[in-house]
Nucleic acid binder design. Structure first.
Lengths: 171, 171
DNA sequence: TCCATTTATCTTGACGTCAAGATATATTCA
DNA sequence: TGAATATATCTTGACGTCAAGATAAATGGA
């Protein structure tokens, strides 16, 4: 069970030498989480690209798909689920509409709003992509045992709940 | 020890209803890690902004600071530590040079290269910022006990090592 | 009923990043 | 020594994001 030293350890060692007054234990945890996130992102992107998608378009299509029939939500609902700004969502929807993966129609019940819906092509693409995406996620977690994964999930859940209290944006 | 349901749980519940053929356990872990990273990033940014910095400039200045006297590295070394592209580093250095936080001089020993060094102002700024930054990181991990933090660090370290093997960019 | 306020969405401009390619210098080896 | 290759850095153009503000429609009292 020796843990070999990684780049984060080398960064912490430098800080301990230069700033021995600082306790950088927490920096190690946050640094590893950040680095892991970047690597995971790159690996997930590979599968997205295989389906002519990126993280942004996958995010929107997946939100529509898992909302269930009729696979339609308002831009506001999509903004809420994906946690991006309205400007970002407008941009994402423009691209997806142009690619024929969604339609955007005025909401007959609210003249200010729209209804965004998956096209048959959009449905087909996201359903295929999500299957590969989940398999990819399984692959990326092969290094941990089932127990370890459960432990990790519990710790992340607890941490997330704790920092969400500090953060206003989380509901 | 009840764990209340969060937004990630609601996403997983939707997938289980719409795609019961998929095991989304891993999606939960990766999703929580991503969300956590985004919240942490925002919280760290608040301290950076208090020092007229952002994540990018903090990253470069901190790398120079912790490298020790004479607080000078080549752009290539900075690229290696910060793991960004050369174009990104050029852009970061331009901003920092303009702000008077670093100097960029030709390397007398290699006509292709430069030496990037902290100015006295840059040193002062990063030293103050890093003190507050570390305190901020302590605050963000208050929700976990010392034992839990250690457990989490071990799991992240193991996971990071496992996915780094799949990834070429990590040394 | 009408005005003030709220809500839904889009627009604009700036930012940080990357990939690809340009340029200049250094190194290697025939 | 000279040509081919490698290395260090910068440039360019595109992308996704955000904050701030614009526009239009809905809502809630007076």
């Amino acid at each position: 069970m020796e843990s070999s030293t990684d780049k984060i350890d080398r960064i912490l060692a430098q800080w301990r030498r230069e700033r021995p007054d600082l306790d950088v234990t927490q920096m190690g945890v946050i640094g590893r989480l950040g680095r892991l996130r970047n690597i995971l992102m790159m690996e997930l992107d590979r599968v997205f690209r295989q389906h002519d998608l990126n993280g942004a378009s996958f995010d929107v299509l997946a939100t529509l798909r898992r909302s269930g029939p009729p696979y339609a939500l308002s831009p506001s609902q999509l903004i809420e689920w994906t946690m991006v700004t309205s400007g970002t969502m407008t941009n994402r929807l423009d691209k997806l509409e142009e690619a024929g993966l969604i339609t955007r129609q005025r909401n007959p019940e609210d003249g200010r709003g729209f209804v965004v819906a998956l096209t048959p092509l959009g449905f087909e693409m996201i359903d295929a992509a999500v299957t590969d995406h989940v398999a990819n996620q399984h692959r990326l977690l092969e290094g941990l045992s089932s127990d370890e994964m459960g432990q990790l999930d519990g710790l992340l859940r607890k941490w997330l709940a704790a920092v969400s209290d500090k953060d206003v944006s989380e509901q």
